[in-house]
Amino acid sequence: MMAEISAKKKLHIPSIAIWVVVLAVLGLAAFGLVRVNTARPEPGQRAPDFTMQFYEGYTWNGQSSASLADMRGNIVVLNFWASWCAPCRVEADLLEQSWRKYADQGVVFVGIAYSDVEPKALAYLREFNITYPNAPDLRTRIAEMYDITGVPETFFIDRNGVIYEFHFGPIDAARLTTVIERMLAEG
């Protein structure tokens, strides 16, 4: 009799169901919080991989889409920008000139347009005669992975896909050249 009562107590289904639902909701909320609070990858850490759909005319190796992993073996200068961002205009010409200078040394410049409107982004690329690969940040997933706090921001990624340096704000010629030359020297 007592054993039956205790078995009934142990299998109280409504209570179990409520606890399962509460725990599931809490678990999902925790997962969401962890995902939202992604920290910016620091130098020495592996660069988060992502796939990009390039703007027409701004492809890489003739491919309309590529992932960062596809670029492994190259030094990647990953630049976040937007056509509405005034400081981005300061560095736009420098980035293009540097791309032309280092393109044949295994350095790939990649522009990621953050929260931009395609016609405006394309007009910006044409205005600065930019020729290096550029892609929109669809659903701002790449910006979230790299936890950018604004534009422009630039990540230098080495040939093994590891973050080498990070630069916040518009970059100047001295800094850009120094970092790329150092990366090239280190192989």
């Binding site: 937007a82 056509s83 509405w84 929260s115 931009d116 409107v117 405006k120």
Partner: peptide
């Protein structure tokens, strides 16, 4: 009033 929003409204 940001330029980004003006662009979006235009879109």
């Amino acid at each position: 009033e940001t330029q980004a929003c003006a662009d979006w409204r235009e879109l």
